[in-house]
Design a protein around this nucleic acid. Sequence first.
DNA 1: GCTATAACTTCAATATATGAAGTTACTATC
DNA 2: GATAGTAACTTCATATATTGAAGTTATAGC
Lengths: 160, 160
Amino acid sequence: MSRSNLAENTCTAARAVELFADAWMMMILREMFLGTRRFDDLQCLTGVSPATLSQRLKKLEHIGVLCREAYQAHPPRYEYRLTAMGRDLWPVIVSMKAWGDRWLGSGEEPPVAIIHKHCGAAVTPHMVCPACHEPMEAHDSEPRLSPAFEHERQAARGQS
Amino acid sequence: MSRSNLAENTCTAARAVELFADAWMMMILREMFLGTRRFDDLQCLTGVSPATLSQRLKKLEHIGVLCREAYQAHPPRYEYRLTAMGRDLWPVIVSMKAWGDRWLGSGEEPPVAIIHKHCGAAVTPHMVCPACHEPMEAHDSEPRLSPAFEHERQAARGQS
DNA sequence: GCTATAACTTCAATATATGAAGTTACTATC
DNA sequence: GATAGTAACTTCATATATTGAAGTTATAGC
C-alpha cells in the first residue's frame, strides 16, 4: 500500500484500514489489549522480528494510539501503553475475535473470554443501533455515500 | 507474517488477524460491503494492482468469505459476492469506519453513512453486552485466558 | 569481573508488491 | 468485416519490505 491517492483517501474507513490492516499492527494491538506492555514480551508473544516490532511501535506511537512511558531511567527502559485513541480500537479487535471464534474456532471454549466487569458475564459483545437499540448486522444496514465521495469514486472508475 | 507458530495459533483473534490484517484484504472487503462486485471496479476503486487483486480474491475465496459467480458464460465473466462468513465481517469494517470517523475525520460529515433499514436512522453502531445490554468499551471488560492458552504464552515467553 | 537483561539496531538473504504492458475471448459499432 | 472496446486477468523486471541471526548499549546484581 503505497499509493498517494489512498493516503489522501476521503473515506475514513479506508484511512483506518490503511493504518491498521497490517498483520503486525493488529497482532501488536491484540497483545496490548491482553495487557502486554514491554518490547521483548510483545516480540515473543506475537512472533514479530525485533526490527519490524521497533518500526511498528514507532508508527503506532506516531499515529497516537500508544505512548512510550519510561519505567526506569538508568538504563532507559520503556513500556508501551494504549492511549484513549488506542483503547477506542477495542471494538475492532473484539469484532475480529468474535469472527474468529465463530468461523475459525475448534468448537471448544475460545482461548480468551471477555468478561463484562459490570455484570460479570463472559460475553461476545454485539452491535446495536444507537437510535432504536435493535441488534445490527450487515443485512440490516445499507451504506449511503456522500456526494463528494460518490464523485471521487466516479473519477476513479473513469480513469481505468 | 510467515511463521508457522502463528498459522497454528490457538488464539482465534490472532488467526482472524492473520487472515485479514492485510491492507488489501480489508480494502477489498470494504468495497464488497459498499456493493462492488467486479474485478475492474475493485481494482480502480481500491487502487490495488491487478496481480495482487487476483491473488487476494483467490485467497478470500479459499477462506470462504466470498464466492465467484459467473454472470455470463462466453467469455467467462465472474462477479464476487460475500458469503455468510464474509457478511459476518461487517462489524469489523464498521468498527474500523467508526474509529476512522472519530479519529481521522475532518470534522465534517463522514463520506459514508450507515442507514439502519429498520428505523431509517443514519447511525454509528456500538457494542453492547448481550447479557445486561449495557454499552461496552475497552475499560468495561477484561480478558480471561484459558489455561491452555496461558500455557502456550508462557512457553513463548520462555523461548526468548 | 562475569553474567544477565531490556530494548533495541544492523545486515545479507529472501519474499512480496508494484506499474506497465500483454493476453484472451468475446461484443458492439461503423 | 474490420476496428475498437471491455472484462478479467497474467507476466515480468524492478522496487520495497521482512526475516532470522547476530550485534550493541547501558546497566544491575552477584
